[in-house]
Design a protein around this nucleic acid. Structure first.
Lengths: 341, 341
DNA sequence: TTTTATGCGTTAAACGTTTAAGTTAATGAT
DNA sequence: ATCATTAACTTAAACGTTTAACGCATAAAA
C-alpha cells in the first residue's frame, strides 16, 4: 500500500503545522485548540497515520507500558503449575486494566540486562534459582515487586507462611503423633531426596523455610520430634517428583500418620497413592496441602490445606508496582479443613 | 550509586575514542582490533557501563527481540487451559533458545497498534473473537504466524482438523448409531446452547468447522443423520460450560450412544457425569475427545481422542516466525484409542 | 616508486519522537 | 492607551544509539 511508514514529520508537513502540534494532538489535548486537534486527528485517520511510533516514544519518554514478569522457574513450569498460572492471570488482568503489557521473563536466563532499559518495572514471582538475577533486581533502576520472597528494600507480596503452616499443621497433629514433611526447594538439589544434614538454602528469604518453621513449631507444641530424615526436599511442585517422594514416604517404617506437604499438587499425589495402597485417609494417614487449588477441593476425601488467593497476589503485585508502593504487604490466608470422616 | 545512567557518549569521552568504536565493540567485533575491543569491554565493566541502551537500540535498529503472542481469548483463560498453556510453553522455549522475549498479548484488546511498532512479530493463537484484530494483523508490517486458524497470505500452523475429526469419529461410530456433538465456538454466543439453525461463524477459517465437517463426513459414511439440534455450541473449552452441556446431552431422549467432543476437557466432563449416572462407558456411550491432554490418558476408561502436540505447535510457530517462513504448514496428529472394554 | 588493498577509526546523519522555551497575536485589566 | 496574561503554535534541543561514508596509515602487489 504505502511506500513507507508515515512519520510525525511527514504528517506535519502535509498538514502544514509543526511536529510539536501533531504530537500534542495525540498526547496533550490541552496544548491546542479543540478545533485544530479534531481536524488533525481526522486528517491523520484519513491519510493512514495511526499515531506516534511507539519505539520512538519509548526512547523519548522513557516508558514503554511493558511490565516484565520474572518467573523463578522456567516459563514452561510456571504455565503448567495451577498456582503459578492463577497468579499470572491476576497479574495480567490487573495490568490490562491499566493499559500495560506483560512480558514473560524466564527465570532461567541469567540477567535482566536486555530488558531493563525498556520495561517499566519487574514483578518477580518466587525465588529465582539464579542469584545473579536477584542481585540485578536488587539494584535495578526500575521498580521491582517481589512475590513469595523478599529483596531488601523492595516491596513484596506475601502471606504469613509461618503462621499458615503452623495452623494447618496444628490441625493435622491433633490426632497424629509421627510426622513427615514433603517440602519444596529446601536444599539446592535438582532431585527429590531426604534432606538429612544437607545445608538448607536461603533460609532468610525462602517461603519454604517459613513454612518449615511453622510446621516445626506446631510439632514442638505437641511435643513431637521431627528429625531431618523425615523431611523430603522436592525441587519443584510437580507430579513426577511428588510421586517419587510419596512412594518413599509411604514405605518407610514405622509409617508416619501425618504428612505435611508444601503444595497441594504434592499432597494430592500422596493422597492418590495412599488410597491405591488401601491406606485409609484421614483415619490412618492425615495429609495437609498448601495453596488451596481447585483440584484439592474436588478430591475425595477433600484435602486439608491453606487457601491463598494466587490471583489476588497477582493483582496486588501489579497494583503495587503501578502505584509505586514501597512497603511490604501481607495478604490473608485461610485454613480449609478436609473431611474428618 | 551513579548520579545518572552512563551513555555510550560518556563512555566514549572517558576512553578517548569515538562513540562508533564503543558501539562496534559491543555489536560488531570485526570492526576493530581485538586488543582495543577487549580493552574497551574491560573498561566498560570497570566503570559500570553494561552496554548500549536497549530502548535506543530498538528505535535505531528497528528490532526489539520481542515477539507478541496474541491469544484469541483472554490471557486468563489461556493460561488455565492445558492445551493453550502447553502451546505457550512451546513458544516460550523456542523463543528463549533464540534470545527472543515473549510479550503476552490479550485477545480481548481491540488493537495491536500499541505494540506493533516495537515487536518483531506476532504469533496468533486461535481465532480472535475480535475481527478488528484480525484485520490489523492481516495488514501488519511485521511478520505474523497464525496457529489453529488462517489469515490469507500469512503462514499458519495447523493439523488437518477435518481428517482428524473424521478419523476419530469413524472409530467411535463403528458401533454407535445415534450421535451428538459437543462443539466449540460454532456460533457467536457467549453461552452453551444447541445450535439449531443459528448461523455458524467463520466457516472458512475456524478449526471448529473443519472438525465439524470431519464429524459429519464420518457420520454420512455410516449412513447416520445428524441434525442441528444434536449439536451443542460451547463458547470455551471450560469445565463449567462442559458440565452444563453434558447434563443436557445426557438427558435428551433417546440418548445418543456416541458423543463427539471438540476438546478433551469437554469429553472428560461428560465422561465423569456419565459415570456418576451409572452409564456404562464405552458400552452404552462412546465418547471421543480432541487434543490428547494428559488428563485424558489418566482417565478411566481412557479417552479416545486426537493427539496433537501443542508444544510442538508452539515451537513450530516460533520457528517459522523467526525464519520468516511464508508457507502454511500442516503438523501430524494421531488418533489414540480408549479402552474397548 | 606508484598503485591497490586492507585494517582501524572517526564523522555525522539518521531513527521518530517529546517538550522546555520562545514567538505571536489576542484578551483583559487598569 | 498601556501592560500583563493567556492561548495557540513553532523552534530546536534532546533521548541514546547505529551505520554509511570517509580518512589515514601501513602492507602487499606491480
Amino acid at each position: 500500500m504505502k511506500k513507507t511508514k508515515l512519520t510525525l514529520k511527514d504528517v506535519a508537513e502535509q498538514l502544514g503545522v509543526s511536529t510539536a502540534t501533531i504530537s500534542n494532538a495525540f498526547n496533550r489535548p490541552d496544548q491546542l485548540s479543540k478545533a485544530k486537534r479534531e481536524e488533525i486527528l481526522a486528517q491523520c485517520k484519513k491519510i493512514g497515520y495511526s499515531g506516534p511510533n511507539k519505539a520512538a516514544q519509548i526512547l523519548r519518554k522513557g516508558t514503554s507500558n511493558i511490565v516484565a514478569l520474572v518467573l523463578a522457574d522456567s516459563i514452561s513450569y510456571m504455565v503448567s503449575d495451577p498456582v503459578a498460572s492463577t497468579f499470572i492471570k491476576g497479574v495480567s488482568s490487573a495490568l490490562q486494566e491499566n493499559g500495560k503489557h506483560l512480558l514473560l521473563y524466564a527465570g532461567d536466563s541469567d540477567s535482566i540486562l536486555d530488558v531493563v532499559d525498556f520495561v517499566d518495572g519487574f514483578i518477580c514471582y518466587g525465588q529465582p534459582r539464579n542469584t545473579n538475577l536477584v542481585a540485578e533486581l536488587a539494584v535495578s533502576p526500575k521498580p521491582v515487586v517481589t512475590v513469595d520472597f523478599d529483596i531488601e528494600d523492595k516491596p513484596s507480596i506475601n502471606i504469613d507462611n509461618e503462621e499458615a503452616a503452623y495452623r494447618v499443621a496444628s490441625h493435622a497433629l491433633t490426632t497424629g503423633d509421627s510426622v513427615a514433611i514433603l517440602g519444596l526447594r529446601l536444599i539446592d538439589s535438582p532431585a527429590t531426596c531426604r534432606i538429612y544434614d544437607s545445608p538448607l538454602i536461603d533460609v532468610e528469604t525462602s517461603i519454604a523455610h517459613r513454612r518449615l518453621d511453622g510446621y516445626m513449631r506446631a510439632a514442638e507444641d505437641k511435643g513431637i520430634a521431627v528429625s531431618n530424615d523425615a523431611i523430603w526436599h522436592l525441587p519443584e511442585s510437580d507430579r513426577h517428583f511428588a510421586r517419587q517422594a510419596a512412594k518413599e514416604v509411604l514405605t518407610i517404617s514405622p509409617r508416619p500418620n501425618v504428612v505435611l506437604c508444601m503444595s497441594d499438587i504434592i499432597a494430592l499425589e500422596l493422597l492418590h497413592m495412599a488410597l491405591e495402597k488401601g491406606i485409609k485417609v484421614p483415619s490412618e494417614l492425615r495429609i495437609t496441602g498448601f495453596d488451596g487449588i481447585e483440584e484439592a477441593e474436588r478430591a475425595r476425601p477433600r484435602l486439608t490445606t491453606v487457601c491463598q488467593s494466587s490471583s489476588q497476589k497477582g493483582v496486588e503485585a501489579a497494583r503495587s508496582l503501578l502505584e509505586q508502593v514501597t512497603s511490604k504487604s501481607t495478604l490473608p490466608f485461610e485454613v480449609r479443613l478436609g473431611e474428618t470422616v
